[in-house]
């Protein structure tokens, strides 16, 4: 009983930290621009594919698995940042003063575009993500299994979230990002160049999605161009659960969702794996629409 419980915690944490990393991208962009960047899930997908190709290319050159892993993560992060900033520049920035619904529709358009482009370039069939690091069990007692990949996923996520927290709370840019997300107009009156802050926000969100994609590929080594859809939806639920726009909320939301899924699969049925996310979404929208840590902002006049 206890082993099963702990096992679910382990699985849930590993899955949840990937959700959390992706959820952070949704919530930060929402924070500064008040719209859901639907293309974020496809940035995640592109991160997985960039990692796939990069790892294939690097594997014969780089003998050290740890270096290979770090290089792949960094490469995917850089690639995702490039994609994220390109989308921001050509699709979202021209709409800065347009009604929010226009931006939202554009985001959906960009998402569909990337998914179809992905199918053309990568093919619709799933590909096997290379095992950058051989799976080794670290712990195997009384039915409790813990492997190195799970530890790695949780550790890397944790490090990224700590770094993010530090950036957001202890740097001038991070503070400006919080200022912009509270009141973009007043931020302008402080001389804060809001476009720069928006670029900064997309950079961080996309980088986290890139890292999350590799961690995902290591845990579930099957990737395809529609990969982002389900992960993206779940990460979005996690962000709403934590209170969209709230950074801590997204991190907690991701972990909670991962744990909820893992427990649901074990104690109820694996066919509820995806349903639980939407169950949580409905519950939160019914009972605490602002999310766990969220407060609805005062509508500005």
């Amino acid at each position: 009983m206890l082993q099963a419980f702990l096992q679910n915690i382990i699985n849930g944490l590993a899955q949840g930290s990937v959700y959390a990393l992706v959820a952070l991208g949704y919530t930060m962009v929402y924070g500064v621009l008040q719209f859901i960047n639907f293309a974020h899930s496809d940035i995640f997908m592109l991160g997985a594919f960039s990692g796939f190709y990069l790892a294939k290319w690097l594997t014969p050159i780089v003998p050290n698995p740890l270096v290979l892993l770090l290089a792949t993560i960094l490469g995917s992060m850089v690639f995702c940042v490039t994609v994220g900033l390109t989308i921001e520049r050509i699709a979202y920035r021209p709409l800065r003063s347009a009604p929010r619904i226009n931006v939202l529709i554009t985001a959906i358009g960009v998402s569909l575009f990337l998914e179809n482009l992905g199918q053309i370039i990568f093919g619709a069939d799933p590909q096997v993500f290379p095992a950058l690091i051989a799976t080794k069990s670290i712990l195997n007692t009384g039915g409790l299994v813990l492997n190195n990949i799970q530890v790695l996923v949780v550790l890397v996520s944790l490090v990224l979230m700590v770094v993010l927290h530090w950036i957001v709370h202890h740097t001038k840019l991070g503070t400006a990002m919080r200022a912009v997300s509270f009141d973009i107009e007043v931020a302008n009156l402080m001389g804060i160049p809001t476009d720069t802050i928006i670029i900064f926000t997309f950079t961080i969100g996309s980088a986290l999605a890139g890292a999350a994609a590799i961690l995902y590929g290591l845990s579930y080594p099957k990737i395809e161009p529609l990969l982002g859809t389900m992960i993206g939806l779940k990460a979005f639920v996690a962000a709403v659960f934590g209170g969209i726009g709230n950074i801590l909320g997204a991190a907690v939301g991701g972990i909670v969702l991962g744990l909820a899924e893992s427990f649901t699969v074990y104690y109820i049925s694996s066919s509820f794996r995806d349903a639980i996310a939407f169950g949580i979404l409905i519950l939160i929208l019914l009972f605490k629409p602002a999310g766990l840590f969220g407060t609805f902002r005062r509508e500005k006049v």
Binding site: A176, V186, M190
Partner: peptide, 24 residues
């Protein structure tokens, strides 16, 4: 420009608000 209703960043600390004032 000190805007009407003050425009404090209510989510930031007093010190962080001052930092933002000196952003430039």
């Amino acid at each position: 420009h000190v805007p009407e209703r003050r425009g404090i960043f209510a989510n930031l600390t007093v010190y962080e608000n001052l930092l933002m004032g000196a952003y430039i």
